[in-house]
């Protein structure tokens, strides 16, 4: 389309200085209104937090509207109170990225099912606040606090309105020092999350504790230590057959073990045969598993499917307690695999 002179050219003449200001204004990216900038930010995916570093204007917009912007899904977030240490635990194979800052160490691990983020160091410090760390994160499975103080400050941070805990399957406080004055903060937290997802260290039985309780002969003979990695399917069945064996509220086999998915399935079936009433109220089992093949991932999926459907549907009602039909899954398998 060829441009043509306007009919009322003289009426629309603009002062050059005014025009320069107008032109400068209208060509600037930041002159766009907030709702348009938000449209840009909503498509920046995992780069969104970085956009806050560009300038104060971006920071204020993203912070003010964080709840309207897409969040980054993290499957598991662990906050560890102890000082950052280098090195990874043995027997664990991950694809991971590490970033060390002045106060913290961040490890990002990528599994087939999603990302895990581990933060070490000074979670209660004000540099920066935990609530700012969590502003753009949507945790889809586990939020885990380890070796730190559970105090009013931490609970206040967790109950900030922009923190989304709606999809958290388990909120785990492990080896935390519980401050006596946290009742009010806990009440606020309970108003925000389903109480069934809360777990405290006192209720937790982990792999080393199981070993200490049920394989004491190994513990008393240092020459015959039973490393968690040696814990196998036969041990699980042996455990079930012990008369005094009871499941604590949370049983975690979270270390790298030799227990197979089929062993977990047999364990569940044996337990149900032994205890027709099913699992005690609030029982949670968590099997951490480093898969050695893709087939194990499929087996784990099948096992989780059995837990979600076969054990909790109407046909199995005579076998399991009502707890298993609770919408909150009581049995949970974390199966990890790295293609090496």
């Amino acid at each position: 389309m060829a441009p043509m002179a306007p009919l009322n050219a003289s009426k629309t003449a603009i002062n050059p200085q005014e025009k320069e200001e107008k032109t400068s204004y209208s060509r600037s990216f930041t002159s766009l209104p907030v709702d348009v900038l938000l449209r840009v930010f909503q498509w920046t995916d995992s780069s969104l937090p970085r956009m806050k570093l560009v300038c104060r204007h971006f920071y204020n917009i993203i912070k003010e509207h964080s709840q309207a912007l897409p969040m980054i899904a993290i499957e598991r977030l662990s906050i560890n109170g102890f000082k950052p240490q280098h090195g990874l635990p043995p027997n664990m194979l991950y694809f991971w990225i590490e970033k060390v800052t002045q106060d913290r160490r961040f490890q990002k691990k990528t599994f087939l099912s999603g990302h895990a983020l581990i933060v070490d160091g000074q979670a209660n410090s004000d540099r920066p606040k935990l609530s700012e760390l969590l502003r753009h994160i949507k945790i889809t499975r586990l939020l885990h606090f380890h070796q730190m103080a559970l105090n009013e400050s931490l609970l206040t941070e967790l109950t900030q309105p922009w923190i989304d805990l709606s999809d958290v399957f388990m909120l785990d406080f492990y080896f935390v020092e519980r401050d006596a004055s946290v009742e009010n903060g806990l009440r606020q937290l309970l108003a925000k999350v389903n109480p069934n997802i809360l777990n405290f260290a006192a209720n937790c039985r982990t792999t080393p504790e199981l070993v200490a309780d049920y394989f004491p002969e190994h513990m008393s003979h240092p020459s015959l230590p039973i490393d968690p990695v040696e814990l196998n399917d036969a041990h699980l069945i042996w455990l079930i057959n012990q008369r005094d064996y009871t499941l604590k509220n949370l049983t975690m086999l979270s270390d790298s073990t030799s227990i197979s998915i089929h062993g977990i399935i047999d364990f569940i079936h044996c337990w149900l045969r032994k205890n027709p009433d099913g699992f005690e109220k609030m029982t949670k089992l968590c099997f951490g598993k480093i898969a050695s093949s893709r087939q194990e991932i499929h087996d784990a999926t099948d096992c989780q499917h059995m837990i979600d459907t076969d054990l909790s549907d109407e046909h199995a009602a005579e076998l399991v307690s009502a707890n298993l039909r609770d919408p909150t899954r009581l049995l949970h398998i974390v199966c990890r695999y790295q293609d090496v």
Partner: peptide, 30 residues
């Protein structure tokens, strides 16, 4: 790069910038 592309100035003090980098450090590489 983003500042240069969008014709924007860094209007943070070095201290503010360091604090913000700490705040978003977790997101790097995700």
């Amino acid at each position: 790069w983003v500042r240069d592309y969008l014709n924007m100035e860094n209007d943070y003090t070095p201290e503010e910038e360091a604090k913000l980098k700490e705040e978003i450090a977790w997101a790097e590489g995700l």
